[in-house]
Structures are given as C-alpha cells and as structure tokens.
C-alpha cells in the first residue's frame, strides 16, 4: 500500500470539509439524500456498453498481469483449515510455479483466526494479509465485539481489515450510526488499511450504493468494497460503476483517493477485464493499480492463470494444471 491515502487521513478519521455534514443525523441525511439520483437505465446501459470493449494481444497481456496483481485471494469458509490457508498463501506469492515472471497477488483474505497462519507463510513477501472483521458477513454483533474482532485481527498481523457495515441501520436511515461505526473501526485499525463492505446486494437501490459510498469515504475508509461474497447478487458492473464515480468525485472534492474492490461473482478473465476497462474509463489510470483497485476472488485467479498460459505458450490450458484452491 502506498502511504498517500493514510498520510492525509490517518490524523482524523473524517475530513474537515465534511464536519458540518456529519454534525448530526439530520445534516448527514440531508447531504446523502441530496446526492444526485442514479439513472438506473443509463447506468446499466453505460456498464453494458463498456463491457463490449475488445481487449487484445499486448493490452490483454498487460490486463491479465495487472488483474493478477489486484487479486485478493480469498477463502472465507467455515471449513477453512490452517493447511488450506498456508496453501493459499503460497499460491498468492507464486500463482504459477511454472513461470517465475508471473506476478504475485495483492493479498490473501481470511477470517481473523487465520491471520497469524497466513502472515507466517507470507513473511515479508510483499503480499498483504487482509482479514474480514466486525462479525462478518452479517455484521450483527454488539459494537465492542466488532471492535475487539478488529483489534484481534490487527494484533495478529493483518495489514488490511475488511469490515461490513450494519445494513439494518443503513436501510432504516440511521446513517450517523453507520458513520460512527466505520470511524470507530477505522480507529481500531491503527496502521492497517480499512475496506468498507456495503453488501450492495442488500442495499436494494443504486441510490443507496451511492449514499453508502460517500458515507464510508467521509468516515475514513481507505477502500470501498461491494460485497461479502455470501449474498447474491454480489459484485456487478453497474454497482461498481457507481462506486467508481463516487471515488472519482470524492477526489475532485477532497483531493484524496479511495480504492474500490468488487468482490464475489467475478470468475473469468473476461469479467475482470471488463472491470479494468471501466476503471480506466470512469476514474482514469491512476486507479489502475493494486493500491487502488482490487478483486475479491478465489476462482478468478485460476482463469487468469489459464489465459496467461495460453498467451505465453500459444495453446489452451486446462484446469488440471492449476491448484483447485
């Protein structure tokens, strides 16, 4: 992670620009509901239009390597074992053991109790450990438990914390509660970077996605993330488009960059490239970097590796030649 985001934001969890906005529940609501509404049809058409771009040869090779570097290799199952996490961490460091030119992924993403295991394997390889915290995936726990969950993960060595917002509070309009929660978790994170998960599949409308994006950015999140991967629909192109627009507008207003992480349901190289095209078109190439855009995925990596192998060897590869997890 580059320090640019944290250097301006770590001193205060919110920005002076928004002090008036977050003063009370009603001023916050006025601001969020005053954001321009999303044209649903227009947004979906734009996302679909961008998805038709054809990316070939050298651009495709670049996109595949970039996408691999952006992957947060994720395992969030009840059945996770230390062995599986070690295997996953090894894969994150060297995704294609047969090809030393293949870059490492950005991070591995695990439950807090697995952080130490992942950290031990990853060492100083440069691959970060991300931990989901705050009673992931539902977010239904008392505040002190969520904070303890976060501190636990940070103490165990997590470089990044993926928190979930309280969707119940958000949907019932208690925006300040959500704001405070994010700000407190941000504080509990210390030096670790905070990703704020909205679970857009539960937010019902695009307008809510835009509001949640601004709320999380004002509260000091380093990244905004679409989904836990446990709820369908997970990441979609239109939802990510709205979030990208939000981080773009936020930088215009505050000069500060926030990252975006779509997660869940991105399974093929084709999907990943569609997202990258969108990032470039909406936000520009400042965001085409693992510090500012991530994919939360597990199966995506194998497809990226198969496509990469196809490009280097000139023949189609098969799933037999890559690890299952």
């Amino acid at each position: 992670m580059t320090p640019t985001a944290s250097s301006t934001a770590s001193s205060t969890s919110s920005h002076a620009v928004f002090d008036d906005v977050v003063r009370s529940d009603s001023s916050l609501r006025r601001f969020l509901h005053g954001l321009p509404g999303v044209d649903q049809v227009g947004c979906e058409a734009r996302a679909a239009g961008l998805a038709t771009r054809s990316i070939k040869t050298t651009s495709k090779a670049y996109a595949i390597d970039l996408a691999i570097r952006m992957v947060d290799l994720t395992t969030l199952e009840g059945q996770d074992t230390h062995g599986k996490v070690r295997a996953l961490a090894s894969k994150a460091m060297r995704p294609d053991p047969a090809d030393p030119t293949c870059p490492a992924t950005a991070a591995v993403c695990v439950y807090p109790d697995m952080v130490a295991t992942a950290k031990q394997t990853l060492g100083d390889s440069g691959v970060n450990v991300a931990a989901v915290a705050t009673a992931f995936p539902s977010g239904r726990a008392a505040m002190d438990i969520k904070l303890a969950d976060t501190r636990d993960a940070v103490e165990a060595g997590a470089d990044e914390i993926d928190m979930v917002i309280d969707r119940g509070a958000f949907l019932s309009g208690r925006y300040l509660d959500v704001f405070e929660e994010i700000a407190q978790v941000r504080e509990a994170c210390g030096d670790a970077h905070l990703k704020v998960i909205f679970e857009t599949g539960e937010l019902q409308t695009y307008d809510n996605v835009r509001r949640a994006s601004w709320l999380a950015m004002m509260a000091g999140g380093h990244f905004i993330k679409t989904s836990t991967g446990k709820v369908q629909p997970a990441a979609t192109l239109p939802v990510t488009l709205i979030m990208l627009e939000a981080v773009r507008d936020f930088r215009e207003q505050t000069g500060q960059m926030v990252g975006v992480k779509p997660a869940g349901g991105i399974k093929t190289t084709k999907d990943a490239i569609k997202y990258l095209v969108m990032v470039n078109e909406i936000c520009g190439d400042d965001w085409l970097d693992p510090d500012w855009f991530r994919f939360g995925a597990s199966t995506l990596l194998n497809d990226l590796l198969m496509q990469r192998t196809k490009m280097t060897t000139g023949r189609y590869s098969g799933p037999d030649y890559f690890t299952l997890d």
């Binding site: 023949r315 189609y316 590869s317 098969g318 799933p319 030649y321």
Partner: peptide, 9 residues
Amino acid sequence: PWLASHMDV
C-alpha cells in the same frame, strides 16, 4: 490444431 494442442482434451 487448437484442439490437438489443447491441454484439457
């Protein structure tokens, strides 16, 4: 030729 070299065939 693509089928002949395909690793999953």
